[in-house]
Design a protein around this nucleic acid. Structure first.
Length: 873
RNA sequence: GGGGGAUUAGCUCAGUUGGCUAGAGCGUUUGACUGGCAGUCAAAAGGUCAUCGGUUCGAUUCCGAUAUUCUCCA
């Protein structure tokens, strides 16, 4: 079976057991502060497990794109070195939400693996939770009994809390799990050492393939477990591993999931996979990472310099690093693999095919930029080695290596590699120490304490009523205190709320909750795991009372205007530039809007003008908002509604339509486009390869902006005596200024040359030196400097002192011919320090030229005298 | 969120006890050589040294803030 058939077989099997098959959620997670990427199949159902969302379908199965870069079983730096760990992988899973439990989960797992996939029974092992005294949980005898139906006891193992008890976090739903392991070693090895001894021992050929989690408890913040009323099943089977087992390979990378990319890579590098351990590792690293990067980008996460985007950038750089070191690539190469990848996986994940060009471009750009970073690092390393050589050291300080890594992003392994070639070593201990310090600093800075939720009344979902009202009666269901470095605040959850939580680029509402004339400020509203959480500095006196929630209407109105304007902008962009425009990001605040979209060139001024004009036209059409809150996804698609890549949508979606602009959107909008009033584009630019950003304003802000512009223009017109052609008048003015300037330059030059002639006459011979000391009638230090340099070029053996009064202060300059500096040991800097005392000032400079200033211009005559005395000695 | 860097010509970057009339390479323009192109040589243009404030006689350089950006950690 090839990988496509395996994926299909899994989904078909569970469909036949009345499971609803759902698409994979995006790999990039939104609305969950604890998670950046989907790292397990259950992530998209977290809301349901937490009880924040209702069960839509009791039985579900899917294949889920997951990304793991850190965690207890996974370290980015290890991926590629073995044959079965990955950054991105597919997790096949089946779920029961309060429906079937252990019996069906185990029976079906068996039916599929043994009955359908024909995995030999003697190669399978199951683990069962042994119980934990501290938690007061007994051995999972139910699971044990079920396994005994299929497996001899010699193939059933008991696992402790670490291996066989699954928890989502410090608190929340949890329960025992049962893992299925498979032994794919050859018969000789199997008879030498029983597979039983190798289960959970990180053996590459005795591996866990499927984990069946039985969620039956809820762990409270105090650590206690309570039995859940509705029990769930959550399973996950690593797709790549399954393919390895079924295709009878010894490595995930030997399956048809990775081989096409590896073959292409070998072609590009001129190497064959399987001939050299080091280049094999590099090829595995790249084959793995290219998938992670490509899917992250299609899910809307571009590489960037922080958060999730930075994780993607680091994965890409790791791959480039391996290609650079072990495959000899010196030019971008990763982007050339996208075509093969898209051909192979675009069927199951169409988003990859659709965005092939963008992915290629973005990766190429990133590769270029990292190769530049490497160049800079290599240059710096060469300097460092040069210094070390001079001091005849052979060890480079770990602090220096750490600086290279920490500040310039130059990886330690490359540092060591390059140093080794030149017979240097690096002090690793110092490096580790510096790293440890950095980690401690970060940890201390991110202390965040969250208290237990205090429940006032039970609630399943907090109902959002803000589409219809900006004011509503509400009750607090639960609250908790959160403490971070800056202070503490409270998170409140209401039974229903008119406050819009930050989502889809639109920032959260602010406002108040009021009781008997007392107002409590809500300073932000956010979404956490599908729950709308309101932030307040303090708690009300009686949290159990009924309040009136009041949204800050003026702010929200501006926000709504900007949000609708964003839709119109998107629409206009597609009209003017073409339908290849895809939204890549959006920020809607009361003050402005920001819209990122895919487009491969700069948007020209003409196009920008056209877009702006079109949006204002759409505003004047005054199209009324046509809102459908519960439209089935299929109908929305038929309507031609625009959806976002990387956004998770339910079966029922909200559709917002203004004229021909139709989008899936949960945000707040004006009732008709006319309310926006006005739309002005402020800037257009690039934020990454193939992605442009437009910033714009609307409504009152736009009006104020234009008024200000007009006022400026009007003031200019007045200043220029009301010319009929303002631009022409300014041009004329500029011309005049530049003509005057050059004239003035000429005059100045003439004056200076007159002055110069005069000064030349004043030169006297003192002690064989051509001496000149003069107070100049000049008010620009630059001219004095100029004169000094000119005279120095024309007169030999020159020693000159110039002084002038500029804006009530003294300015003094000393110039000494080079030969005098050399022969007589004169130093202008030292001399001027002496002289400057006479004008209550100080100064300095180089041996041949120095300048000084002083507060007392009356000292100038004395200063000039003193200069002569100094030279006469 | 915390730490460390960077911001100098169109681009890539130099520029240390604070004072060198701020430089290099590439690119651009012009000229010369050449039948033409490529090329070589010569010359020129191009800088609010990110912004604002402070220290100082004097700041690209030191200090502080802001913006942008890179990088590491969480």
């Amino acid at each position: 079976m090839d990988s496509k058939q395996i994926r299909e077989a899994f989904l078909e099997f569970f469909a036949s057991k009345s499971h609803q098959i759902v698409p994979s959620a995006p790999m990039v997670v939104k609305n969950d502060p604890t998670l950046m990427f989907t790292n397990a199949g259950m992530n998209q159902f977290k809301d349901i497990f937490l009880g924040n969302a209702p069960v839509k379908s009791p039985r579900i199965a899917d294949t889920q794109k997951c990304l793991r870069v850190s965690g207890k079983h996974n370290d980015l730096e290890e991926v590629g070195h073995d044959t079965y760990h990955h950054t991105m992988f597919e997790m096949l899973g089946n779920w029961s939400f309060g429906d079937y439990f252990k019996k069906e989960a185990i029976d079906w797992a068996w039916e599929l693996l043994v009955g359908k996939f024909n995995i030999p029974v003697d190669r399978l092992y199951a683990t069962v939770f042994e119980g934990d005294a501290k938690d007061g949980v007994l051995l999972d005898s139910e699971a044990l009994a079920l396994w005994k139906k299929y497996l001899p006891e010699s193939q059933i193992l008991f696992g402790n809390k670490k291996d066989n008890f699954w928890e989502m976090g410090d608190s929340g739903p949890c329960g025992p799990c049962s893992e299925i392991h498979v032994d794919i070693r050859n018969d000789d090895e199997r008879s030498a050492i029983p597979g039983r001894a190798l289960v959970n021992e990180s053996h590459p050929q005795v591996i866990e393939i499927w984990n069946l989690v039985f969620i039956q408890f809820n762990r409270k913040a105090n650590g206690q477990l309570e039995e859940l009323p509705a029990k769930h099943v959550d399973t996950g089977m690593g797709f790549e591993r399954l393919c390895m087992v079924l295709q009878k390979k010894q490595s995930n990378y030997d399956t048809d999931v990775f081989q096409p990319v590896i073959t292409e890579l070998g072609f590009l590098a001129g190497k064959k996979y399987g001939e050299d351990e080091k280049s094999d590792i590099a090829m595995r690293v790249i084959a793995d990472h290219i998938r992670a990067i490509a899917f992250a980008i299609t899910d809307g996460q571009l590489p960037s310099n922080n958060k999730a985007g930075y994780v993607i950038r680091r994965i890409l750089r790791r791959a480039v690093r391996y290609g650079y070191t072990f495959l000899g690539f010196r030019k971008p190469f990763m982007h050339q693999l996208i075509n093969v990848l898209a051909d192979q996986m675009g069927g199951a994940f169409p988003e990859l095919n659709k965005q092939r060009d963008l992915v290629t471009k973005v990766i190429r750009e990133e590769e270029d930029s990292f190769l530049r970073t490497l160049e800079t690092g290599i240059r710096m390393l060469e300097n460092i080695m040069g210094v070390a050589r001079k001091k005849s050291q052979t060890e480079i300080s770990g602090v220096v290596a750490f600086e290279l890594y920490d500040t310039y992003g130059f990886p330690l392994d490359l540092t060591e590699l390059i140093l080794r070639e030149e017979s240097f070593t690096v002090n690793r201990e110092e490096f580790e120490k510096a790293m440890e310090e950095q980690k401690n600093r970060s940890r201390n800075a991110t202390q965040l304490e969250t208290g237990d939720w205090i429940e006032i009344r039970p609630s399943l979902e907090s109902e959002f009523v803000g589409y219809d009202a900006l004011e509503s009666e509400l009750k607090i269901c639960r609250y908790r205190k959160v403490k971070d470095k800056k202070g503490e605040y409270f998170q409140l959850v209401f039974d229903k709320t008119p406050f819009y939580a930050e989502s889809g680029g639109q920032i959260g509402d602010t406002g108040w909750i009021e009781i008997e004339g007392v107002k409590l400020e809500i300073f932000d509203t956010v979404k956490e795991n599908g729950l709308t959480v309101h932030l307040a500095k303090t708690l009300p006196a009686d949290p159990s009372a009924t309040f009136t929630g009041l949204v800050n209407t003026s702010k929200q109105l501006s926000t709504a205007g900007n949000h609708t304007a964003t839709h119109l902008l998107y629409h206009a962009l597609r009209e003017v530039l073409g339908t290849h425009i895809e939204q890549k990001g959006s920020l809607v605040t009361p003050d402005s809007l920001r819209f990122d979209f895919s487009h491969f060139q700069k948007v020209s001024d003409e196009e920008l003008e056209q877009v702006e004009k079109r949006v204002n036209e759409l505003i004047r059409h005054n199209s009324a908002r046509d809102e459908r809150r519960e439209m089935p996804m299929a109908d929305a698609e038929k309507l031609g509604a625009i959806a976002l890549f990387g956004e998770k949508y339910g079966d029922k979606v909200r559709v917002i339509k203004f004229g021909d602009s139709i989008e899936l959107c949960g945000g707040i909008h004006v009732t008709a486009t006319g309310e926006i009033g006005q739309f002005v584009i402020i800037s257009e630019g690039s934020i990454s390869a193939g992605v442009r950003r437009i910033e714009a304003i609307s409504g009152e802000k736009a009006e104020a902006f234009l008024r200000h512009k007009m006022k400026t223009a009007k003031e200019l017109t007045t200043l220029l005596n009301n010319p009929s052609d303002l631009k022409g008048a300014v041009e004329q003015l500029l011309q005049k200024v530049s003509a005057l300037n050059s004239q003035m330059e000429a005059f100045k030059k003439e004056a200076a040359s007159g002055l110069k002639k005069e000064l030349l006459k004043q030169i006297t011979n003192v002690n064989g030196i051509n001496f000149l000391a003069s107070k100049l009638p000049v008010d620009d230090a630059g001219i004095i400097k100029d004169l000094a340099f000119q005279l120095n070029g024309e007169v030999d053996n020159l020693f000159l002192v110039f002084a002038a009064e500029i804006e009530g202060k003294a300015s003094v300059h000393v110039m000494i011919a080079d030969n005098l500096v050399r022969e007589r040991g004169l130093h202008a800097g030292n001399i001027i320090r002496e002289l400057a005392k006479l004008v209550d000032g100080g100064g300095g400079g180089q041996p041949f030229y120095a300048s000084a200033g002083g507060k007392n211009p009356n000292g100038i005559p004395g200063l000039l005298e003193k200069a002569k005395e100094m030279i006469s000695e």
